[in-house]
């Protein structure tokens, strides 16, 4: 679905021209879970590579921007994180890759440096500033923002069943625009925008004022959270 000048794809990537922007891959999360006594076999990297290969194919992608939280653990590098990040990078070595620092990305620089990739605070793409979104930025400069960090989903009850859809969020206010990406990781848990009281990011406004674009086989516009909360209560 095209909004403004960007494409919100059902594959959880924002596409601008031949650039794809994805966020919150949380690679190596299994190592962290395993360290906490949860023996989840290594599953993410395979799925992440496969999903992104499809994106590259479908949208003729030449450049990839990772909007933060490429890997999962913040305090140090876990065994799988090195491997997973490297495996991801080597799978897409033909692409230009730009990495924006997220709150989980300490120590990522070392891994990226081996491939000559710089870890940056923000990237400018097609009039948008891509950041992770976990801290304040100079909003005077950045009128239009693409960010991650929130892992947004909507959970709804329909005829007795519960359905969870990952989603994009969008906020517009007098020439300003913020687009929030869903988490690209298939295992990280989502945050239900219909039930939270506030966002984590200092860049975002009141929850009720953002618009929801839910993802299924296509992207569906579901209006502002304010209206959506009312509607899901009625169906």
């Amino acid at each position: 679905m095209k909004v403004s000048s960007v494409e919100l794809t059902p594959e959880k990537a924002v596409v601008i021209g031949s650039t794809a922007i994805i966020s919150d891959l949380h690679l190596g999360m299994e190592s962290v879970l395993q360290e906490r006594g949860f023996a989840l076999p290594r599953v993410q990297i395979r799925e992440v590579i496969k999903s992104f290969e499809e994106i590259v194919e479908k949208y003729d992608i030449e450049r990839l921007v990772i909007a933060g939280d490429f890997k999962h653990e913040f305090s140090r590098n876990m065994p799988y994180e090195w491997e997973d990040v490297e495996e991801f990078l080597s799978n897409f070595s033909e692409l230009e890759i730009l990495a924006v620092r997220g709150n989980h990305d300490n120590f990522l620089a070392a891994i990226l440096a081996k491939r000559g990739i710089e870890l940056v605070e923000s990237v400018e793409i097609g009039g948008y500033t891509v950041v992770h979104g976990h801290k304040e930025i100079d909003s005077m400069k950045a009128g239009k923002i693409i960010m991650g960090h929130e892992h947004p989903v909507v959970r709804v009850r329909y005829e007795g069943g519960i359905y969870t859809f990952p989603c994009y969020l969008r906020y517009r206010d007098r020439g300003k625009e913020i687009i929030v990406l869903p988490a690209f990781s298939p295992i990280v848990s989502g945050s239900d925008v219909l039930s939270i009281d506030f966002f984590l990011s200092p860049l975002l406004p009141d929850v009720e004022d953002v618009e929801v674009y839910a993802i299924e086989d296509d992207v569906f516009y579901l209006g502002r959270v304010k209206e959506l909360r009312r509607v899901v209560g009625e169906i």
């Binding site: 709804v156 329909y158 005829e159 069943g161 359905y163 859809f165 839910a214 299924e216 086989d217 569906f220 516009y221 579901l222 209006g223 209206e227 959506l228 009312r230 509607v231 899901v232 009625e234 169906i235």
Partner: peptide, 18 residues
């Protein structure tokens, strides 16, 4: 009910509301 049907139903409803 498949997920597509659910999301479409909500989508249509929200369009009416808007």
């Amino acid at each position: 009910e498949d997920r597509r049907k659910v999301i479409r139903a909500i989508h249509e409803k929200i369009l009416q509301v808007i």
